[in-house]
Design a protein around this nucleic acid. Structure first.
Lengths: 213, 213, 213, 213
DNA sequence: GACTAAACGAGACGGTACGTCGAGTCTTTGT
DNA sequence: ACAAAGACTCGACGTACCGTCTCGTTTAGTC
């Protein structure tokens, strides 16, 4: 459906095109440097000047193209957010959801993932950041809806099951623990979370099987 | 980010005229002003200078007592966080959890609540903020554990039920929706969330029992 | 990270109160540095940043105290302009005027004098510069009026003689040559200029007397 | 110094639409725009970009042809300076000189005249500006020398009279007042100035003779 | 009731970063 | 072959806020 280019972040540390660098190439270096700095010290530690220096570009160039610090961050976020996360296909809904939640947990454990998460939440008042965040979630939920669609096809879930709710309930506690309360997320807990989500998915039946009577 | 308004004087908060008065009163005015500014424009818009002015205090005084911007915010957060939220007692666990989650949702809908949430998440890398956040969560989970304790006493839950898990699963989706994806939280959804949490609380039977009864 | 160009030249002028220097002393060093730079390369070459560096002061300090580049220049101009030039007293009006004109010529030959002259003229549209210039001229004409007053006392000039006109006509051509057409000013020419000024000073009598005799 | 107004479009000067238009008619539009901007806000307010926009030409074109801001200004100055001012011929030297001085005064009262004067003085350190200024003065003095030549022919002045000195003494005070001290120039004062100049031109008698006749 | 130490008011300063302006250069594209 | 378009480097501007420091004054706690 949505073919987002899966271009890697390429942590290749900026080639350092110092003086004559007629970069222009697209400014990918700038976005990379931005993400790099976010990963290193979070939003507060990311300065436009440092980004420019790392990208081998002049400060004014950054401002010309991205308008402001927020614009730059938003662009970097968008670039990173559109990097498609593969949707798992294990054969069962439960394992798929566990895989999704685990993937989220892993991501939030990485410095970059954590930094982006904090930025999305902490700078949510900025309209540009907000818009990128909205698009990000829309994309993520659209992607993961496939997991649920397959489950419906397999008969694991009734026709009208709410895909978003299922995924939201599976992922929310992971974000909460990892980003809000900052406590470790382990596999067992993820399983519990997914089971809870499944418990209210569709009209009970699928999960308990016997509650129908 | 660039609003000056030198006059300010704000909402009549600070008596401003403290000729002989030994301020010291505890600096409550400073913390109040801090929260006020956080509520108004979030963490980014809160400046020590503006806080000092609103509190009718000099900037250096703020630094003398709270050390830094983060220290000040941490203190304000602590002051606000320790304001005990009443633990509900409706008679049933489900309604208690719904009440707790609803209370959280209401709080996160308020400008101040939202600002504090964003601060806690966005500035989580700062040790002082982090500590306050840790204490806050510890307190909140301790408080709400009572709800579960009562349920156990009533026989709604088996002895060894995990109070924290129950509350966490009830509250996490609310935070996620409200703070992370920024979508509205309605009562029906809260009920679903709580039901999901209850579904994995204690050995299945409790749940099914409850559902049946 | 940010390599400061080690130019620093600074002809041993600034005490270089680097780190703990709670300068405040009055910022004379800043004004001195300003004049220095003006002398070196004129108005265009004078940057606030360079001034600050030479004065061993931070850029923001300069802006705090003088508001802007123009304000700084105006202050430096005022400081320099108020340095009283001694009014000559040779015994005769003609020699006094020659002395005044010669002094002006010498000043305009110096790099600093030339730079200030060019600044006064070239930046005349700036209100701050303008005001300083006005005060400067007022002061200069007031000072030199004494020369004329003495001449009146000596009977060289009638009572109501126009001091300003006399001085103006003596000095204007010097400025014109030196600053406007940029040609050298020699003593013989100064004598001619002063004679021309004297020729129209007072109600003819002095001149006509001379012409008659 | 900080007025933006990106729209501008100015006083309908530039045709703006030069689709096939090859090689600008000779760049007159550019020089006109330059003078226009100089007249409007002086040297400081004149930017190459604004000039280019008003002339309906691209910035790079300006740089190609005039090399730099100074080169452009020099060219504009030259274009304007070479516009011959008519040399008066009233019949008497005194009236001719008064006419010349008055013409200078009128010119210096106009925004453009004032701006050019300030530029010539303020940017005198730039070699290009300097050269244009030199040529300008050479031309002006050559032109006005005719006035003196005629006076000699009429017998108003002796053969070897110094034309340049006469004109210089007549004009210098006007420049001084108008450009340096920025005070108004009135007709009576101009007469005084010219009389002073005449007083030292040739052997005194000429002046008195003229006055008597 | 005077005396001292802590805390405060006031104000400037060093320092980092922001975002902006304009000069001048270079490359691509078109005519 | 020259010009339009547009992006880029570079140096500087002026501003905001952080956190520090100094000095003088106030006030509280103690003798």
């Amino acid at each position: 459906m949505s073919d987002r280019s899966a271009s890697a972040v390429s942590s290749a540390r900026a080639p350092r095109r110092r003086p004559g660098g007629r970069t222009a190439r697209g400014g990918a270096a700038v976005l990379t440097a931005t993400l790099e700095l976010l990963a290193e010290g979070g939003y507060a530690a990311m300065t436009v000047e440092e980004v420019a220096e790392r990208a081998g570009v002049h400060k004014t160039t950054v401002y010309r193209r991205w308008g402001s610090r927020e614009g730059l961050v938003a662009a970097a976020l968008a670039a990173q957010g559109s990097a498609n996360v593969p949707v798992p296909d294990t054969g069962t809904l439960r394992d798929d959801l566990i895989a999704v939640a685990t993937s989220v947990a892993r991501n939030l454990e990485s410095p970059l993932g954590r930094a982006l998460a904090q930025t999305i939440v902490g700078q949510a008042d900025d309209p540009q950041i907000q818009q990128v965040a909205d698009e990000f979630w829309q994309g993520r939920f659209a992607d993961t809806a496939e997991v649920v669609a397959r489950a419906i096809n397999r008969g694991e879930l009734p026709q009208g099951s709410d895909a978003r709710q299922l995924v939201e309930l599976s992922v929310a506690p992971v974000w909460f623990r990892s980003v809000v309360t900052r406590r470790p997320v382990d596999a067992a807990w993820i399983r519990t979370v997914v089971d809870a989500a499944l418990a209210v998915a569709g009209p009970q039946d699928v999960h308990t099987t016997t509650a129908q009577g």
